[in-house]
Amino acid sequence: MSDVAPRGAEPLVLKVLALAFTVFIVGYILVPILVTVAMSFNDAAMIRFPINVWSMKWYADFFGSPQWMDALENSILIAIGTAAISTTSGVLCAWAFQRFHIPFRDMWYILIMMPLFMPGVVLGLGVAIAFGGISIGGYAFYGSRELVMLAHSLWAMPLVFMLMEATFKTIDYRIVEASYDLGGGPVRTFFEVVLPLVSTGIVSSLLFAFVISLNEFVMALFLTDRDTQTLPVLMWLSLRSAGTPRLAVASVILALTVFTCLTVIMLWYIRQLRKVAR
């Protein structure tokens, strides 16, 4: 005889409460996004309910505006650069941690992770002050996209490092030894065996770094000028002058990009799971 009550025998009150709670949580998460999406189809000149006329007018306006398209381009280029810089450095750094004996390991670990917990204002201001007057070969570093990429990598690289450090730990080290054993040198082994084994981690790292940079606002505000300002920065500036539904369109574009990234991570993960379970 089982002491466990059969499934479905919970009191009705509990079931209703559970359902209500679930609906509340899902709603809580989705409402801001749904409101923004709805607002982006508003024909009016102001962000305001109710929406009387629906239209794609502000989408046309967004994609027709050189200023907004430049900001979108800046955002995406900076995000790609950040993804490349932080993934490369984070992966190599994590591999070195995994593979070699490193003196003062814990100290280095804290040092690497520290920027992740620093307020964006502190980092943004710090980088702005440090690189404010610096130009290399006549190229002013301050205000450039590259500087924003580096600043964003301060946040993204520790994240990649943390993620990859955990991923590398899952590798059966005998497999790496097998590669050495069969004549694969360290570099070939890294590219032929290690990287494919952690491909899920790499893809996740790239996309996380991309999304972090895309979403980042404070450092970008401190470090960009009119030519290099990112989408969030332009949104903030234009909100102060005119709150048109164009802002909602920009939000939808940002949100869609993030969703796409998450979908790619999911699909990749499922693909890898299939491979192992085949």
């Binding site: 005998r174 030894e177 097998a178 050495y180 054993d181 069969l182 004549g183 040198g185 494919p196 491909s199």
Partner: peptide
Amino acid sequence: LPAYRRDTATIFQSGALFPHKTVAENVAYG
């Protein structure tokens, strides 16, 4: 010499096959 320059080949306890490579690719690796 490092392991990859020695003319030795190890059969590991776990097999240590490359999980992302097919049987043929595993055999071809060395």
